[in-house]
Design a binder for these strands. Structure first.
Length: 482
RNA sequence: GUCCCCAUCGUCCAGAGGCCCAGGACGUGGCCCUUUCAAGGCCAAAACACGGGUUCGAAUCCCGUUGGGGACGCCA
């Protein structure tokens, strides 16, 4: 397919919104292919629709790709900058007889479309302008009448061997003479894409399968322009829980949303990769290098996949526990700082303690947000008490107060603040009271964290230190008295 | 309406003619461990859309039906 030359792929989003998870997945597969087979992964911003394109959106696409680590090769291509070539290509097609001028106005076309719709017929441009006499054509051009350039679709059938679908064929009679250049001289999508892909030397066009119906038109353009065809690969769509194409109404669909909700880019990539691809077998949790290693076109799925945020969270939990703590730290630290739990300097000053904390907390977390939530009691003087935790751990306030008071007295006198002495002291307390250890631990957990979830109680005490632990208990005692 | 694509548990995947009365994961339910848990362990329920072929044999190949999705713009 690439004849020994380096494959060249591209991701070509239009900057009209945010980087969508579907777009991110398309970018990912292009990137994986390039990385796996030693190719180039290029980025092209399709900003030919000036009315809808924004710089802000372009920025969001860069940010999203950078966060995910899907870095592109070479400089970014802005489609709008290629206008002269697009026009030249349109002119070439006009001159070599592949296209013709059409004077039908948008209003006329809309009218005809409406008629076709009411008659329940499929509308297709009837080529009336292709039948204009030479004289009339010249007269109208000379009169300054506006016209578009339409591609003259030849007889026959257009097919290609898709990398994921095998052969796909369209009878040309079902393809209308599509517009390639607007009356204002700007190109239409299909022309701009083909012109740019040729110019960029793209050998593999991998994109969403909503572009399948554009493909025969583009193939016709490649041929008319005398350019070699790339290999096409049409990836399945991503749908929302209702089975429809994923869109804003399905909730968070912007990559940035996940970034800000404490997801790890590696987990996002892993999850996205599994939506429409599988390395075969039961393999699921993978690092990026493993994905590159295992990537293959054979594992690509034809069927649309439904985006399941719950599994994404689970996947993130897996990655949270799996990655080296040194890699996790830089992802969490900015959040710790912006949540005002600590300053950068404070974290640096007790880095070992901090890393141990992260290690303790990540086990029970699915997102970085979970880690931040659980981290609060280790940094803040005052904590909030989760009503659910209070209801469970301090079911009987009088008993809780009594137990906490005893616990406090005991802990104040533990000479060695490490897990073993702490454990034996607390267990001894339970035994002396004739109650289970849990009865002692439960109120203590709520006093220390205010949460229903926490690491093991002894590790937690050690991590908090004597001073903070005792202060927490004192505060709890105060609260319980009220 | 026309054209195109798709079709294995609720969801994501495995399965490329016999290894499958279909396997893994998420989620769900139960049990165990345990000081809690969104952690860990075990178990359970849960699918080859339907109908025809082809074949000794089909989840796997072919055809049709049904269902779902996508595209039909001087948007991309």
């Amino acid at each position: 397919m690439t004849n020994g030359t380096k494959p060249r792929l591209r991701f070509a989003p239009s900057p009209t919104g945010y980087l969508h998870v579907g777009g991110a997945r398309t970018a990912l597969f292009n990137w994986l292919y390039a990385r796996k087979f030693g190719g180039e992964f290029l980025l092209r911003i399709e900003d030919t629709d000036k009315a809808r394109s924004t710089d802000e959106s372009t920025r969001a696409i860069f940010d999203g790709l950078e966060w995910l680590g899907l870095l592109w090769d070479g400089v970014v291509v802005y489609q709008g900058a290629n206008l002269p070539r697009h026009q030249a290509d349109a002119r070439r097609l006009l001159e070599n007889g592949s296209a013709y001028r059409c004077f039908c106005t948008p209003a006329e076309l809309e009218e005809r479309r409406r008629e076709a719709a009411t008659g329940k017929e499929a509308f297709k441009y009837d080529r009336r302008c292709d039948r204009l006499s030479r004289e009339e054509l010249e007269r109208r051009v000379a009169a300054g009448e506006l016209y578009v350039i339409r591609f003259r679709v030849p007889e026959g059938e257009t097919d290609w061997n898709d990398m994921v679908h095998e052969r796909i064929a369209f009878p040309n009679k079902d393809i209308e003479d599509f517009v390639i250049l607007r009356s204002d001289g700007t190109p239409i999508y299909n022309l701009a894409v083909v012109s740019d892909d040729i110019a960029m030397g793209i050998t593999i066009v991998m994109r969403g399968d909503d572009h399948i119906s554009n493909t025969p038109k583009q193939i016709l353009l490649y041929r008319a322009l005398g350019a070699p065809l790339p290999t096409f690969a049409h990836l399945p769509m991503i749908h929302g829980l209702d089975g429809k194409k994923l869109s804003k109404r399905h909730g968070a669909t912007a990559v940035g949303d996940y970034q800000h909700h404490g997801l790890l880019p590696g987990a996002m990539l892993n999850f996205l990769a599994l939506l429409g691809w599988s390395p075969g077998g039961d393999r699921e949790v993978m690092t990026v290098p493993e994905m590159i290693e295992l990537f293959s076109v054979d594992g690509l799925q034809k069927k649309a996949a439904i985006f399941d945020p719950v599994k994404l969270d689970w996947m993130n939990g897996q990655h949270l526990s799996m990655i080296p703590i040194e890699d996790l730290e830089p992802r969490v630290t900015p959040e710790i700082i912006s949540a005002r739990l600590a300053t950068e300097d404070e974290l640096v000053a007790r880095r070992d303690w901090y890393l141990r904390l992260l290690d303790l907390l990540r086990v029970r977390s699915r997102t970085i947000d979970d880690i931040i939530r659980q981290a609060k009691p280790y940094f803040l003087d005052d904590i909030d008490y989760d009503p659910a935790a209070v209801a469970k751990g301090w079911k009987d306030p009088a008993e809780a107060r009594d137990l906490l008071q005893s616990t406090r007295d005991l802990l104040a006198n533990v000479s060695d603040w490490t897990t073993e002495p702490l454990e034996s002291a607390l267990r001894a307390l339970a035994e002396s009271r004739g109650i289970t250890a849990g009865r002692v631990f439960q109120p203590l957990r709520v006093a220390l964290t205010g949460l229903t979830v926490s690491p093991g109680i002894f590790e937690m005490l050690v991590q908090m230190g004597r001073e903070l632990s005792l202060m927490r208990i004192d505060k709890a005692l105060l609260v319980l008295r009220a």
